[in-house]
Structures are given as C-alpha cells and as structure tokens.
Design a protein around this nucleic acid. Structure first.
Lengths: 405, 405
DNA sequence: AGTAATAAGTCAAGACACTTGACTTAATGA
DNA sequence: TCATTAAGTCAAGTGTCTTGACTTATTACT
C-alpha cells in the first residue's frame, strides 16, 4: 500500500516514553509541592518505591535534584526529602516589544539570574536583529560568568512578542508589529544562537510565567488577562499552555467591540497603547514606566478617565473569559507599571455575574498576577523549561523524545 | 514524612499505559484514515511492524478490527488492510432537554442503531427520572434484539443536557433547567442502569458528535457553535473535548451583551427559545420542528426578522470564538430544524474579519455541521466511545486503566 | 520465462523499565 | 528493651517494545 495520500495518526509510545513521562512527573511534583521524599513521590505518582528510587537516582546524577537533610517525623526510618536543584537547567527568555527588547536568564525553578534590555530601533527586523542577537549573547556570557556549566545546561531560548502571528496583513497598523510578525524569527534566532528556539505571544508568555512561579502555579485551568502595550489572554488549560492552531489563541485584543455604530478592537480601548494615546505620550520614551507608575500612584486625574473606561472593558473581558473557558481563576497581569495594574484591579470590581459564581470556590475569581516589565521575558524563558521538564502528552509520544516540538 | 498536607502530582505510567495508548492510537488511525495495513500503521504511528502486528492481532481477537481482502498495489507482498468493526463496541446516548428526552444506541463507528424519544413531563427529576430510565432500558433491549453481545460490548452511557452545571442558582429562570442541573443525575443514572455514566452539556455533546462522524472528524482544533433551545459552543482543543473546570467551558449563551444600556445573555437573543418567544409558540408542542422547518423553507416573513437579528449575534460570536480559540474551523450545528440552520448560515455571511483570515487556509472558516434533533443524543453516546477508545493523555496515566474518569 | 527488486509480514532473541516481595535500616512509643 | 512503623534497597520477575534476520508474495525488468 504505497498510496501517496498521507496517513494521519498519533504517535505510539514505548519504554522511553514511559520513562520520560515519569521523570517529568517527578520534577513536576517537586516543583509543585516543594521537597518530597521518595516514599512521598511513590504515593503521589502511584509508582512503586523502587521505580521512584531509580528515577530519583538518575535525576540526582543528572544534577536536577538533590537530597536534603533527613527529617524525623513519626515512627519509622526518617525520610530523605529531595528538592529541585535550581542550577540543574537554564533557559534564556527574550521579549521583543515595540520599542524595547529584554532578555533574561532563568534557572530550573524560575529565578531570574541575569537580565538586560536594549532599545529597539524603528525599522523592524532589518535594524533590530543584530540588537537582539547581541543582547542574547550578552546574557549568555554573563550567565556563564556566574554559574558553572551554564551552556551545557541551557535547554533553549524562548522568544515572546505581540501576536497575532501569520494573519493576512491589515496594512500598516502602527498598533501591530507586522514587520516582525512576518519575519522568520525562529529561523533567525536558531541560526544566530544555535539554541532550540520557541516562540509565543506576549500574553502566553505572561501566563507561562504565572504558571511557573506566579499565581497559576500548580493550577490546571487558568486564564491570564495580560495588559501590556497590547492586551491578550494567556490560556492554561489542562495544566498546559494552549496555543491554538497558529499560536494565536487568546488574542482577545483583536476582539471587536461594537459601540456607537462602529467597531473597535478591544486593544484600542484597553491597553497601554490606548493610555499613551489618551495621555499623548511618546511610547518610545524610556522613562515611561516610572512616569506612568508615578501618575497612577498619585491618583492623577489624567489617568482616572482611562482607568475607569478600561475597567469597563476589562470587567466584560473577564466575564467573557470565565464564560468561555470555565477556569479556576482569572489572573490579571501585565507588562505594565504595578501601580497602574493595581488601580485597574480596584476599578474592575465588582465583577459581572458569570458561571464562575459558584458555591465552594477555593480561589478568587480574579487575582492579581505579576505586574512587572520583566514578566514577559521571564515567561518566554519558562517556555523551554516547561517543554523540557513538564509532564505533557506530547512528551510521551515517540516522535518527541529528542526534538522540542 | 506522614504530613497530612495533600501532595498533588500527576500519575506516572508503566507498560500497561504504553500498551493502552498504542491500542488507542491504532483505533484512532483506523477511524480517521479508514482501513490501513499493518505496515501503514507502523509507519504512521512510528511503531515497529512487529509491535503493530501484535496489537492488531489482539484487537482482532477482541473483535474491534477485522481484515479485509488483500490489495495488490505495486511491488511487494500485497497488504492486508484492517478496518474497525462497527459491532466492536456500543454506547447509549441520552439527551435531556426542556420538554423531551431522546436516547440512541450507537456502535463503534458512530452509526445510530436504535433511537427513541419521550416527552418529559414538567416538574423536573421527580417526574422525569422514571421516563428517562424506561427510555434507556427500552433502547438497551432493542439493541440487544438486533446485535449479538450488545450488553457485553456496551462501554457506557453518555448523558447530555443544557448547562451550565453547578452555578449559584439565579432563581427560577425558565430558560434554564435548574432542577435538573442541581439533581445528582450521574449517580441516579449509574444506579439505575449499572453502566458507566458520563455527563456533558448539549453543545459539548454536539461537538463530540461532529468529532466522531461529522465536520470535525480528524480535526484537532475546532469550535462547534451549537444552536438549540439554548446556545453554546463545544470545544475540540488538541484533539479532545475541552470541558473546563466544571464542565461549563464554551457556555457562550451565558455571555452578556450590552446594548441600549442593558445587558442580555446571548441565549436570550439567538436561540430556539428566543425564536419560540418571537413567534409566540409553545415550546412543548411536539410538532414544533416540522413547523419551524416548514416556515424556514418557505422563507416565511415571521422568521425573517429573527434570523437577521440572530445572524448578527452569531456572526459576532464566531468572530469571538475565532479570536479566543484560534481553531482550524468553526462548525455551526444545532439541535434545530435543518432549514433554519441553513437560513442562519446564509444570513451570517460574510464573516467579520478576524485572526482566522490567513493565507493558506485549507478549511473554510465556517462550515455547516449536523442540524438534526438527534445529534446531541448521538454526541452523548460518542462520549463513552471516545473515553474508551481515543488516545488521550489521561488514558496513559496509571490511575485510569480501569476507571472511566 | 526467469530473475532481481521491492514490500508485507513473521520469528525469536534481546533490551528496557516497571513490579513484586522479601529484606535492611532507623526511627518512635509502650 | 522490644514491638511497631515506615523508608528505602535488593534481586528476580514480567510485560511490551525493538532488532535483525527471514519468509512470502507480487511487480518490473531483462
């Protein structure tokens, strides 16, 4: 049967898949629960003590976990807890935004070890690529200066930039970053760094960050509403980031709102860009964050109108996200001045009624997440860490043992 | 470490999980591609010929696949294609709607073998439970009359009813089915039938049906916009139905729309219920479908205004679903008269611009799905079939080999 | 025709990773 | 002091996939 019609099927799996999954499950358990003994791990993962012992031994040899002092709790032999070794792996995260690019190096537990930023000249990739590659190279060499074997333990480079990706161009919308979105960034970064490179939109990166070290830590269903230069939602569904067909899932900023007979994307109404426009501020100004933060802290009147208007849209966005995704919680985060995000959160409440209103909730419907200009770069770096170490369906399948898909 | 704090971790896996996954992958491949030879399966699943041979042999013994006549295509030994055996497994599907309950028996490939319906008396579960259990019992005995061993091969009972589930009650909204939604339906059905029982909302069931035998067949990312008595979206994400935290994901009917200074749920504007209200029709009328279908076919003026208004809301809903889920396609389906759905589709076009507008699309942005009063019951039945036979992450994990979670 | 090439499928041994059950170690509590 | 409890190890066992050689059956070429 050498038909030319392609046959579509999921991959099968084998021992390697089993083993890879079980390793990931151990790491995940330690990440979520903190240090655990082998016996704890065996109970939690439903594997046998022996299997856990073997895997832990291997992980320890690989420098990913290490034992702590034995704890004497009750009867029986004291248990030896194991914890993740932060220096077990590193990843570089890269944020490409309209006027600035930021890079960080993080370790296995999501601590930022090195950070640096650079202004991004106008003109898109032709002018910006070198700036970015230099920034990444700088981060890598600084990382090598503080930790041993950083290069050997570098699992990849995660990039994040505003979406959407690959859509039929709407001309030359200054809100967008079309030149970058059309540019073969993955290939360029791969060639320029020799690393495994991943790409996600900025809201997805923010969600990835919240999942590794923030409010979504250990939560299986969460939506991160991300306010930055644009606005988007990062989706954690079934414990994994959901990307959609083309990596554009969650691009709520592109949702059209109808009012006064005309339609406007949400992004034009509630986003830092809209605030800059409202305040007639040049978004390329490097002191922008401090200035906005200051205005927000002082409760400045010039910001008030925007906050109130944006809060209406955000309140509705949260209602909609709850309705469509049925998450455990919604997290409001941003690559935005913290004081501004705090004012938004205050202005948003009380929330609209939704299916999220139910008895027995343990998590609040809306929680604040990171509001930090570095959170997107952190999330970008968390991407490769997650791909390499988190338990997921794709990692069990036979075609993915070696390749980062 | 006998701490009382619960430890959260994913399950590990072992050989059984591997084997279970590979069996499912074979079945899935045959479902998507039709009959395939062992060599085809080996290539598609990346398993070895030997492994495939062993698994196919086992599936054949279990009566799930059977060989067809050898095909001579090119050089080499002729291949023997294997196909799914429809009689390999059965499931019962049950739809509970406002005024009617329907049940079907389907086989492994999703063919409906038996169907029956009954009026559902007012008063909720106290009056309706017996009707439903009798209906299911009737379907089972009829199924047993047509096929051998139907009881032995019955993998479960899937129930579908309008959501949302478990939300803090909004009083006694006649649009809802609160009494049923609060009722311990799963437990009652389990006790009353002795089967494994699953429950999903009607839009999810419709999506499950589209996935098994309809427009979403073999598609990994699809959103089914479902128009029935209410309106909802069934989400196929990463090849699986997405349920959300409480089985309420996709409940777009609960989304509030703001117009003229007041908010209205989408469901009150675009749904059969709203049409019934518009036409002042009693929704309990058994001849309803035929009547509406007739009106729609005749292009009746009384329906026109509703269709045009609903199309505006649906057009926007599709835009929103595309924006948030980034699916390969949106499928408009319904437990509604076919002529009505056709008129809606005609009235919806052209679609609003969205991120789904991209070069190189292979699937249309919007496709018609099933518009059939039985599609929800069919989808309900497809649930247990899918749980038992489709490849999915949960099926690999150690705690799920025997239990239908 | 006869033969080489090609591809499907089988056989039997091997490898790998988890499981089993007995055992060792090291605490607590009566 | 010693029974009890629990962590963790040891060594053999088991299930499932892999490997590589082999058989079978057909087409294509000379």
């Amino acid at each position: 049967m050498n038909d030319s019609r392609p046959i579509r099927a999921k991959s099968g799996t084998n021992h390697e898949g089993t083993s890879a999954h079980n390793r990931r499950v151990m790491i995940d358990a330690l990440r979520i629960n903190g240090a655990l003994s082998r016996a704890d791990l065996a109970r939690a993962t439903r594997l046998t003590k022996q299997t856990v012992s073997n895997i832990i031994e291997e992980l320890e040899r690989d420098g990913l976990v290490s034992s702590q002092e034995a704890v004497r709790g009750g009867r029986g032999q004291p248990s030896t807890p194991y914890r993740l070794v932060p220096e077990g792996a590193f990843a570089i995260g890269l944020q490409i935004d309209r006027h600035v690019t930021r890079a960080v190096a993080v370790d296995l537990v999501g601590s930022v070890l090195v950070r640096d930023e650079a202004g991004l000249p106008p003109g898109g990739p032709s002018n910006g690529t070198k700036v970015i590659l230099d920034l990444v190279a700088g981060i890598r060499s600084k990382l090598a200066g503080i930790v041993q074997q950083s290069e050997k333990r570098l699992v990849g480079l995660g990039a994040a930039m505003p979406g959407p990706f690959g859509v039929a161009g709407s001309g030359d919308d200054p809100w967008m970053m079309e030149a970058w979105q059309k540019f073969p960034l993955l290939e360029t970064l791969t060639a320029g760094t020799g690393l495994d490179v991943g790409l996600q939109n900025d809201a997805a990166a923010a969600a990835t960050a919240e999942r590794m070290v923030g409010a979504a830590h250990g939560i299986d269903h969460a939506v991160c509403l991300f306010v930055g230069y644009g606005i988007g939602a990062g989706l954690i569904l079934n414990g994994e980031l959901y990307r959609g067909t083309n990596g554009n899932a969650g691009e709520i900023g592109m949702a059209l709102l109808f009012a006064d007979g005309k339609s406007t994307p949400l992004e034009h109404r509630a986003s830092l860009a809209s605030l800059y426009q409202h305040l007639s501020i040049d978004p390329a100004d490097p002191g922008l964050y401090a200035r906005i933060n200051d205005l927000a802290l002082r409760g400045d009147q010039s910001i008030h109108a925007w906050v109130e208007a944006a809060a209406v849209d955000l309140r509705w966005s949260i209602h909609l996200l709850e309705t469509l995704f049925d998450p455990q919680t919604v997290i409001l985060c941003g690559s935005a001045p913290e004081a501004l995000v705090n004012r938004l959160i205050a202005a948003i409440g009380p929330l609209l009624p939704s299916i999220a209103e139910r008895r027995g909730r343990t998590l609040p419907r809306l929680q604040p997440g990171m509001a930090d200009p570095w959170s997107v770069a952190l999330g970008a770096a968390a991407g490769p860490i997650s791909r390499a170490f988190d338990p997921r369906f794709a990692a069990i399948l036979k075609d993915s043992f070696n390749s980062e898909a």
